[in-house]
Amino acid sequence: MKTFNYHSPKETKEATKLASSNSVFLAGGMTTIPSMKLGLASYKDVINIKGIKKLSGIKVSGKTLKIGATTKHAEVAQSKEVKKSIPSLAALAEGIGDPQVRNRGTIGGSIANNDPAADYPSACIALNATIHTDRRKIDADKFFRGMFETCLKTGEIIESIEFEIPAKSNYQKFPNPASRYAIVGVYVAKHKGGVNVAVTGAKSCAYNDKDLSSALTKNFSSSAVQNVRVSPSGMNSDIHASAEYRANMVKVFAKKAVEAC
């Protein structure tokens, strides 16, 4: 790993001031540190944001659940509030990586990184999340731009993620046997306003499958999924799974999720 200057600000403003095009915010570091080690990334400044108190914590208020950006996966998985309000989200967190990753990795880090096979982006999309940063609120469907790409600006810090509590929801993941990331992950959430079917792992970025969503909005049952055609076009194809296979697995796991709702 190349050398860098480490900073540990206590306030968001201070963190923002330290940021530049050659810096990175460090939360759990579960992707940032391996990337630096493998020489895929290097930075002049590494800015630890875990010391900023207001970035952590879990709170339910009315129809939403708000999770601070530096909240760890294990905290989300074990949180009584999350289990009660959106149990599928706690289950999703419980399925990320392994126990040691969950003890260190954070929700904010995961969505800022936007790995195409990460779990949380699908939750954000399915649960109509609002991403609160130090300067604005962003709807999840606008936040995720593409592979490892979000609409965050240089120095912009995610403070929290606010999820809409659904009537029913479930997340089903088909893990890559090697990395245990999602080959496909399907998050189904039934809201008053309709159903979202957010898919991760299948394409370069998590997305809401409109066809599946509208079919399930009309008829919330696994047979409704059966009649939707999921096209492999635009889907990832690699040594672990072809696009055609992924397309089929989207349906299979959408059905599983609906059945488990």
Binding site: P177, A178, S179, I239, H240
Partner: peptide, 11 residues
């Protein structure tokens, strides 16, 4: 070598 890490080589 495509399977050059534990991300791609299934242990």
């Amino acid at each position: 070598l495509v399977t050059a890490s534990y991300m791609d080589y299934t242990m």
